Every structure is written in structure tokens, then in C-alpha cells.
Simulated assay, not measured.
Amino acid sequence: MNNPIGHEIDNNIAALDQVQSTAIDLALKFGPKLLVAGLILLAGHYVGRWLGKMVEGLLLKLELDVTVRILLVRLARVLVLGMFAVLALQNLGVELLPLIAGLGVAGAGLALAMQGVLSNLAAGLTIIFTRPFRVGEYISIAGEEGQVEVISLFNTVLSHPDMSRVVIPNRKIAGEILHNYGQVRQVNLSVGVAYDTDLSAALARIDALLAANPKVMRDPAPLVQVATLADSSVNIGVRPWVSVEAYPTAAGDINKAILESFRAGGIAIPFPQREVRLLGQA
């Protein structure tokens, strides 16, 4: 008579032996491949770190924003690690064609859903590498103007003298006509003097007060000349160069200095005049 307990024990032992045999077969079959795949991923990690340092050194020379630099370095590392991951999957015998096809379909759908974001990203990369303007420069573009405060992958931030900030999507900048003032701006002023004024004395006074103004740059030299011969006055154009930071207050300071200097020198600034003649009266 068979012992049912002993029979069950024999079955369990046989099952364990089969599992052990299967595990050994799988280890012998896939063990070396898993080891090689692990080594490939480890190599990808170190290659990614090495390439990241190279990219960071290159971006430091380009004087890019810190946030953009870190993002680009991480992107380079991820791309390298992704390439080595593909090699590891190939070593394990994974069919990559269906995986790539699935990723392609998903990527196409994601691209359609994120058209605006991707266009900003592409325009941001174009701005970063072509460098039509830099942080600190004063620009006018897309109907806005201001000093460049931040250049990111998705938008550019301009600061205004009134302490406000303008955030412009990068896709609105790429392809637009850009006026880059750089780090300096030219103040455009005009002052009228009477026709009987000694113009040489008036021009000398303006030159002197511009030379004494710390906000006015010496190079390039200010442009002071007779601009127009108006109806009631001779208009003198005053166009000095100042830094972007000094621009908001420079015009007021120069106008005040011109008025005080002309008063001290007895130079009149005439009011507009009209001569009216009445005809046909006895």
C-alpha cells in the first residue's frame, strides 16, 4: 500500500529539482548576457559623465545661463545612457523593432500635443547657440523692448525701467526683426535757441556740461550739432551715449543742466512765435 504522504513529498522534491534545473539552465543561458548588459550600462554611465564634463566645459565658454547649461549637460548624459541601454537590450536579444515602432507612434502623438512647447524649445536652442543677444543687453523685438534678464529654453525675460518684466515665448522671437542696442543707448535731445544767439558759445556750453556729466560716455563721443532751422529757433541736436542703466534718468539730467547753463550765460530759449497781419482795415 502506497504512503500518500511520502508520494506527495516525492512530488515536491521532483518539482524543486525541476525548478533548480530550470534556474541553472536560465543562468547558464542568460547569465553571461546579463553580466555583459550590466557592464554595458556601467560603461554608459561613466561615458555619460565624461561627455557631460566635456559639454559643460564647452557651454562655459559660451557663457550660457546656469539653468540652461545644467539642462543641456543632463540631456547629453541621458542620450549617451539611452544609446548604451539600446546596446544592452540588443545583447539580451530583445526585439527592438516593435519597441522603436511603439516609441515612434507615442512620440508622434506627444509631438502633436506639445507643438507650442516644442517650437519654443527649438527656438530657444536657436537663440542660445546663435546668440543674437545676451543677458544684460537692451533689445527691441516683437513689439516689446527692455533689458535681457533671462534666456531660457522656452522663453526670454525682459526687464523694464518701471520695474516690470516682459516674458516673451521664444517662438515669437525666432525669425523676427531684432534691434539690439547692446550695453549702451543714445539719448536723442533737442534744444532751441534764438536766431541771434552766438551758436559757438551755445555749443561750447553743451559740450562742457556733457563732459562734466558722469553718465555720459566719452567713447563714442557725444554728437552735438545744429539740427534744424525752425520757424522760431535754431534747434541744436544733443545725442550723447550712456549705459543702459543710466538711460532712464540721463535725458532729464542733461535737459536740466542745459537750461541752467543757458540761463547763466544769458542764452535765450525762444517761445514759438506767429506774426498775424490784419488786411483790409482802414
Rank of each mutant, 00 (worst) to 15 (best):
L121T: 07
G143M: 00
S159F: 03
L125C: 09
V117R: 06
P132K: 08
R165M: 11
R165E: 13
G116I: 08
P132F: 01
F133S: 11
N155K: 15
L118Q: 09
T126M: 11
S152A: 12
V135K: 15
E144A: 10
L118C: 06
I141V: 15
S119G: 02
N155Y: 06
R165I: 10
V150T: 14
R134F: 07
I127W: 02
A142M: 02
P132C: 10
R134L: 10
M163T: 14
S140H: 04
V150C: 03
Y138Q: 04
G146L: 05
V135S: 07
G146D: 06
L121Y: 06
S140G: 12
R134I: 05
A113Y: 04
A142S: 13
S119H: 11
V150D: 12
L125Y: 08
G146P: 02
E149L: 13
A122H: 14
I151R: 01
M114C: 04
E144L: 03
A113N: 03
M114R: 07
I128M: 03
L110E: 03
S119N: 11
S164V: 06
I127F: 02
S159Q: 13
M163P: 01
T126I: 12
S159M: 09
R131A: 12
R134N: 11
T126V: 11
V150K: 15
L112F: 10
F133D: 01
G124M: 03
L118S: 07
G143I: 00
V117G: 02
L153M: 13
F129T: 02
L118M: 14
Q147H: 03
